[in-house]
Amino acid sequence: MKATFQVPSITCNHCVDKIEKFVGEIEGVSFIDVSVEKKSVVVEFDAPATQDLIKEALLDAGQEVV
């Protein structure tokens, strides 16, 4: 499964690193693409990962998800 999250609070590479760390810890996540320019995060994943778990990880990383 693939999901795109709009994350307007992404401003720098530190944000990218933190997002990759938090989302990458979720079992089932196979790909993460964070774009500072587009302020988006694209995640490819399989169970047990879910969109809700990914959104929670983004929030835990200090990001706003819309």
Rank of each mutant, 00 (worst) to 15 (best):
I26G: 01
A47P: 13
V7D: 00
V29W: 02
V42P: 00
A49P: 00
T50Y: 03
K2I: 12
I10E: 03
C15Q: 10
D17N: 09
C15I: 10
D33M: 12
I32E: 00
I32V: 11
K18N: 06
G28W: 04
V34S: 03
Q63L: 15
V41G: 01
V41K: 00
D60W: 11
I26W: 02
S9H: 07
G24D: 03
D17G: 08
E37Q: 11
E20T: 14
E56Q: 15
I54Y: 01
K38W: 12
E20R: 15
L58W: 02
Q51D: 06
D33R: 11
E25W: 08
H14P: 04
V43P: 00
V36L: 12
K18R: 10
K55I: 15
F45V: 02
V34P: 02
D33W: 14
G62S: 06
I32P: 00
D17C: 08
E27L: 10
E25R: 15
A47R: 09
F22I: 10
V7C: 06
K18W: 07
E64M: 12
S35V: 05
V16E: 03
V65Y: 06
E44D: 06
V36P: 05
D17A: 14
I10R: 00
E44L: 14
E20P: 01
Q6H: 14
A47G: 06
E37R: 09
N13I: 15
I54A: 00
Q6L: 14
E37D: 09
L53C: 06
V34M: 04
P48L: 02
S35P: 00
F5N: 01
V66Q: 10
I19F: 03
Q6W: 15
I54G: 02
E44P: 01
E37F: 10
S9E: 05
E37I: 11
V42E: 08
D33H: 14
G28E: 02
L53W: 05
V41E: 02
P48K: 00
L59W: 09
F22H: 10
I26V: 13
N13T: 12
Q6M: 11
D52S: 11
C15G: 07
E64N: 10
G62K: 04
G28A: 01
V42F: 12
V42T: 13
G24W: 12
P48D: 02
D52A: 13
V36G: 04
Q6S: 11
I54K: 02
D46M: 14
E25Q: 14
G28V: 03
T4P: 04
V7I: 08
D17K: 13
S35M: 05
V66H: 07
V43S: 00
L59D: 05
F5L: 04
E56W: 10
S30M: 12
D33V: 10
D17T: 13
S9I: 05
I32M: 05
E25C: 07
A49T: 03
D60R: 15
F31L: 09
A3T: 08
S9W: 15
T50I: 02
Q63G: 05
K38G: 12
K39H: 09
N13R: 14
A57M: 04
D60P: 03
I32T: 03
E25M: 13
Q63D: 04
K55D: 02
D17I: 14
V36Y: 06
A61T: 04
D46L: 10
V36A: 05
D46T: 14
V43F: 01
G28P: 00
V36S: 04
E27G: 06
G24H: 06
S40T: 15
M1P: 04
P8A: 10
V41W: 03
V23E: 02
V7M: 06
T50G: 01
C15T: 08
V7E: 01
C15H: 11
S35T: 04
I32N: 01
L59N: 08
E27V: 12
A61Y: 05
A57K: 06
V66S: 09
K55R: 14
K2E: 06
D52T: 08
Q6V: 12
Q63W: 15
V23M: 05
V34L: 03
F45I: 01
G28D: 00
S35D: 12
K39T: 06
P8M: 09
K21L: 07
I26T: 01
V43I: 06
E64C: 15
V23S: 01
I10H: 04
V65P: 07
G28K: 02
K55T: 08
E25N: 13
I32A: 02
S40Y: 14
S9D: 06
S9L: 06
K2M: 09
Q51W: 15
K38I: 05
I10Y: 04
F31T: 11
K38P: 02
G24P: 00
V66T: 10
S35W: 06
Q51E: 14
K39E: 05
K2C: 11
I19G: 02
C12G: 14
I26D: 02
V23K: 03
V16H: 04
L53F: 05
A61P: 02
K21S: 08
F45K: 00
A47I: 09
S35Q: 07
E64R: 12
E37G: 06
D33A: 10
F22A: 13
V29T: 03
P48Y: 01
P8C: 07
C15Y: 07
V36N: 03
D60E: 12
G24A: 09
I26Y: 00
L59T: 09
V42N: 06
S35K: 05
V23L: 12
E20K: 15
T4L: 09
I54W: 02
V65S: 06
V34T: 05
P48H: 03
E64H: 10
S30F: 12
A47H: 13
T4R: 09
V42Q: 08
D17M: 12
G28Q: 00
V7A: 04
T4Q: 10
A3G: 05
A61W: 07
S40D: 05
S35G: 03
I54Q: 00
Q51G: 07
V41R: 00
E56T: 13
F22S: 08
F31D: 05
I54P: 01
L59H: 10
F22Q: 06
L58F: 04
E44M: 13
G24S: 11
D46C: 11
D33T: 12
L58Q: 00
K21I: 07
D46R: 14
E27K: 09
V65L: 07
Q51H: 14
L58N: 00
I54F: 02
D52G: 08
K2L: 10
T11E: 08
E64D: 09
E27I: 12
V43N: 01
F5M: 02
D17Y: 12
N13Y: 12
N13A: 12
I32H: 01
F45W: 13
G28I: 00
V36F: 08
I54D: 01
T50L: 03
F31E: 05
I10M: 07
V42K: 08
M1E: 07
G28Y: 02
Q63V: 13
K2W: 12
E37K: 09
A47V: 09
L59C: 06
L53I: 10
F45T: 02
K38D: 11
E44K: 12
I32C: 04
A47Q: 09
Q6G: 08
D33S: 12
I19V: 05
V23T: 03
V16Q: 06
Q63M: 15
F45R: 00
D46F: 14
L59P: 01
T50F: 03
A3H: 09
V7T: 04
V65K: 04
V23P: 00
C15V: 08
G62W: 10
L59A: 08
K55C: 10
S30G: 07
F31Q: 08
K55M: 14
C12E: 09
V23N: 02
V65T: 05
V16T: 06
I10T: 04
K21F: 11
G24Q: 07
S40P: 03
E44Y: 15
E56H: 13
M1G: 09
V7N: 03
F45E: 01
K39M: 08
P8G: 08
K55Y: 14
D46A: 12
L59E: 11
N13G: 14
S35R: 05
V43M: 01
N13E: 11
L58Y: 00
V29Q: 02
V36Q: 05
T11S: 11
K55N: 05
T4N: 06
M1V: 08
V41I: 07
A61L: 07
A47F: 13
A57P: 00
P48C: 04
V43T: 00
F22N: 05
G24Y: 13
A61K: 03
V36T: 05
I26E: 00
V29S: 01
A47W: 14
P8D: 06
A3V: 15
P48R: 01
D52C: 12
V29D: 01
N13W: 13
M1T: 08
Q6P: 04
V36R: 03
K21C: 05
K39I: 05
S40A: 08
T11R: 13
A61I: 06
E27H: 09
E56Y: 10
C12N: 13
V41L: 05
S40C: 13
L58G: 01
V42L: 11
K2Y: 09
S30N: 09
T4M: 10
T11G: 07
A3I: 14
V41C: 04
T50K: 00
G24K: 11
K21V: 06
F22D: 03
K21D: 04
S35Y: 04
V34R: 00
S9G: 10
F22C: 05
Q51S: 12
P8F: 08
F5Y: 08
F5C: 04
V34E: 03
C12K: 07
E64W: 13
V43H: 00
H14V: 15
V16S: 05
E37H: 08
T50S: 08
